[in-house]
Computed example of a mutant assay.
Amino acid sequence: MNKKYIYERAVLITYGLLFYFLLINFEKLLKGLGVLSSVFFPILLGVAFAFIFNIPMSFLEKKISKILNKISLKERTSFMIRRSVSLAIVIIVFISIAIITMNILIPQVVQSMYSIIEKIPTTIKELENFFRVNIKNTYLLEWIAMRLGQVDSNIVNILNNVAQAILNSIIDITFGVTTTILNSIIGIIIAIYILLDKEKLKSQLKLVIYRISNDKYSKMLTSILKLTYYKLRRYIGGQAIDATILFIMIFITMTIFKMPYTLLISSIIGVSAIVPIFGPFIGALISILIMFIGGYNNIGWFIVLVIVMQQIEGNIVYPIVVGSSIGLSSLNIIVAVIVFSSLFGILGIILGIPLFGVFCEILSKYIKKE
C-alpha cells in the first residue's frame, strides 16, 4: 500500500479525532479560553489595538512616503520618519476620540436615557387612556390595563434595583474603570512596540511556521493567515467607516430638523450598523421606540428619515466602503451572525463574519481544486 496514502489517511483520522474531542468538550474549552484570556488580556488587547491601529497607519505611511520621496533622505531615515509620524498621528487621534467620548458623548447619551426613563410612566398612562377611549371590548381593555400596570411596576422595580446596585457597587465600578484604563494603557504600549517592529515580527512568525511543518503545509497556513488578515482588515475597517458615516448622516439630519435625542439616536443607529442585515433593523426599531416614549409627535417623519438614511448607507456608502470583501451571500451572513453571536456574543458578531468568509473561500478553492 502507498505510504503517502497511509500518511494522508492517518493525518485525516488524527484531525477528525481531535475535532471530535474538542466538540464534546466545547464548554470546558470555552471556560479554559476564558481563563487564559483574562490572564493574557492586556497582551491580547495590545494585539487588537495593533491590528486596528495598523489599518489607518498603513494608509498614512504610504502618503507620508510619497512626500518624503521628494526629499533626498536615506532609506533608514525615511522609514523611521514615516513609521513614527504615522503611528504618533494614529495614537493621538485614538486618545482624542476616547477623551471626547468619555467627556462629551457618554454624559449626553446618559442624560438622554434618564430623560426617556422619566417619561415612561407618563407614556404608559397616555397609552392606557388611548385604549380606554378607542377600545369598546371590556375584557380586552381590562387585560391591556393590567399588562400596562405590570410594565409600569416592573420598570419602577428595575430602576430601584439598578439605583441600589449602583450605590452598593460604586467601589467595584471604580476599580473596574481603573483596571480598564490600566489595561488600555498597557495595551497601547504593547501595540506601539508591535507596530514599530511589525516587519520583524512578521518574518519571525513566518520562520516559526516553516520550522514546525513542511513546505506544503507552511505555504497553505501562510496563505490562510494572509487571507484571514485581509478579510478582517477590510471588514473591520470598512464596517467602522460605514458606521461612522451613518452616525454623522443621522446626527446632521436630525440636528437640521431639530429632533430630540440627536446624539443618543445617531449613536444607536451608528453602532447597530456594525452588524450586517440585522443591525439596521434593530437600531431603527430601538430608535423609533425611544422617540415614541420620549413623546416626539412627528414619528412618521422620523421613520422616513431613518429609512432614507439607511437606504443611502446600504446602497451607496456600504458598497463603496466595504464592497464585496466578505465574499458571503446574505444567507451565509445570517447563519454566521446567529451561530457566532450565540457562541461568543458581540465579539462573535465582529470576528465571526470575516472568519466564516475565510472558511467559505478556502472550502470553495478546495472543491474547485478537486
Rank of each mutant, 00 (worst) to 15 (best):
D215V: 09
S267R: 01
S218F: 00
K200F: 09
F94W: 06
G32T: 09
I346N: 07
I334K: 04
E361V: 10
I299Y: 06
A336L: 03
V90E: 01
N157D: 14
M102T: 07
N160D: 14
Y261T: 02
L23K: 14
T253S: 13
I290L: 15
T101F: 09
L105S: 06
I100K: 06
E126K: 05
L347E: 08
I64W: 05
I116M: 03
V335Y: 10
L227W: 06
F340E: 06
I99H: 11
E313Q: 15
S287D: 04
I307F: 10
F53W: 13
M80L: 12
D172C: 07
I6K: 10
G187Y: 03
S184L: 15
M146A: 14
Q150W: 13
Y193N: 11
T174A: 13
N168A: 15
L18G: 14
I349S: 05
I288M: 14
Y114D: 07
G279P: 04
A98S: 12
G32D: 05
S330V: 14
S58C: 09
F26R: 13
S364R: 15
E370T: 14
K365V: 02
I135D: 07
L246E: 01
L87R: 06
L196K: 06
K369I: 00
I24T: 14
V35I: 15
L363N: 12
I67W: 13
V133G: 00
L127S: 04
G46P: 01
K28P: 01
T222N: 11
P42R: 08
L221A: 06
Q150L: 15
I248C: 09
P276I: 00
S203G: 00
V304W: 08
F79I: 10
F94N: 02
N214G: 15
L30D: 06
K31L: 15
Q111N: 11
L148Q: 05
I120W: 00
F257R: 14
F247S: 07
M80Q: 07
L18E: 00
F41Q: 03
L196V: 02
R83A: 02
A98V: 12
G300A: 13
N168C: 09
I71Q: 00
I43N: 08
Q239D: 03
F340N: 13
G46Q: 02
L17S: 10
L347S: 13
A10E: 11
S213Q: 14
R82G: 01
T101W: 04
L305C: 04
V151Y: 04
I303V: 08
M254K: 04
I106F: 08
I194P: 02
Y210Q: 09
E370L: 14
Q111P: 01
I277R: 02
V177G: 00
V162L: 15
L23N: 12
I256C: 11
F247Y: 07
F130Y: 09
N129T: 15
K28H: 06
L347W: 12
V304A: 15
K70W: 01
I320G: 10
R132S: 13
A165P: 00
F251S: 10
S329R: 07
K74P: 01
F251Y: 15
L207K: 11
T244V: 12
